[in-house]
């Protein structure tokens, strides 16, 4: 469970990121955060693993106020919170396997990891997670030889390898084409339901949000302007969140074929 209590964030240069956010995310929920760029979606997500530092309020992850965590405790929090990025953030020159097992670093001693001495279970875990996202045939290829959708799947496998309680995905499909986007979202959804991992995804595509979310949080100018189950959401809701009529580029488009392979 994650609880935002009157959480505000002002960036060092004076830009406000979040204003008085009060949200509770329950275990196992699949939450999609929508909003225009600059609305504070990223700041919201990155507060949860302290990649940004909220300046006021309280933020509880599993009943622990995480705002004062430092050093080892902060790293411990981050091992529990997996993160997926828009640009996959893989090491291009390293193999798919090495990228995947690097998800295990937070659980592994420094010396052991430097000499690549991961336990058998960890290696099996990494391989197994590659299988879950159907990318195991590329295990020994360099990451940069894969397509965008494949790389994003590797980054999902990396996150799974860290055994997270919670997955944050910051615009995971913004760099992908429509069919691949749906594929990636389907994997995230599948993991959410099978492993009961709470998942929070930033999206700016309305149709995708509607298709995959249990619950939608709308943000504008750092404030939460909508929060409710997907059944309560209509086109009107989005127009309120975006504060303008819906346009065609707010939609990703449908899942016309089965991805790029």
């Amino acid at each position: 469970m994650i609880t935002f209590k009157d959480l505000s964030l002002v960036y060092p240069n004076g830009t406000p990121g979040l204003k008085d956010v009060n949200v509770t995310v329950n275990e196992g929920e699949f939450v999609v955060i929508v909003g225009l760029s600059g609305a504070g979606k990223s700041t919201f997500i990155r507060s949860i693993n302290r990649m940004v530092n909220p300046t006021e309020g309280e933020l509880y992850v599993e009943d622990e106020n995480i705002l004062d965590l430092k050093g080892k405790d902060l790293r411990k929090l981050r091992t529990k919170v997996g993160m997926i990025f828009q640009n996959y953030n893989l090491v291009n020159r390293s193999s798919v396997f090495k990228n995947t097992i690097s998800g295990r670093l937070g659980h592994t001693g420094t010396l052991k990891s430097i000499f690549n001495l991961f336990s058998k279970e960890d290696k099996a875990r990494a391989y197994n997670n590659l299988k879950r996202v159907n990318i195991e045939e590329y295990i020994y290829q360099r990451a940069d030889q894969l397509s965008g959708g494949q790389q994003q799947r590797v980054s999902i496998a990396r996150v799974l390898t860290q055994d997270p309680k919670l997955i944050l995905a910051d615009e995971p499909v913004a760099s992908l084409d429509p069919p691949t986007s749906h594929q990636v979202m389907q994997y995230l959804k599948k993991i959410n339901t099978e492993d009961n991992i709470t998942t929070i995804v930033n999206l700016h595509f309305i149709d995708m949000a509607m298709e995959y979310a249990d619950r939608i949080i709308g943000m504008r100018d750092g404030e939460v302007v909508f929060d409710g189950p997907v059944s309560e959401v209509s086109e009107k809701t989005f127009e309120q969140i975006y504060n303008r009529p819906i346009r065609e580029d707010d939609l990703r488009g449908s899942d016309t074929d089965d991805g790029e392979e």
Binding site: R78, V81, N89, V91, S102
Partner: peptide, 20 residues
């Protein structure tokens, strides 16, 4: 960004140096 990803999964400075 790779460094960021490793930070986000709880790796320490030494591990980031060797892996990212």
């Amino acid at each position: 960004k790779v460094v960021e990803a490793m930070e986000a999964n709880g790796a320490n400075k030494m591990q980031i140096l060797f892996y990212a």
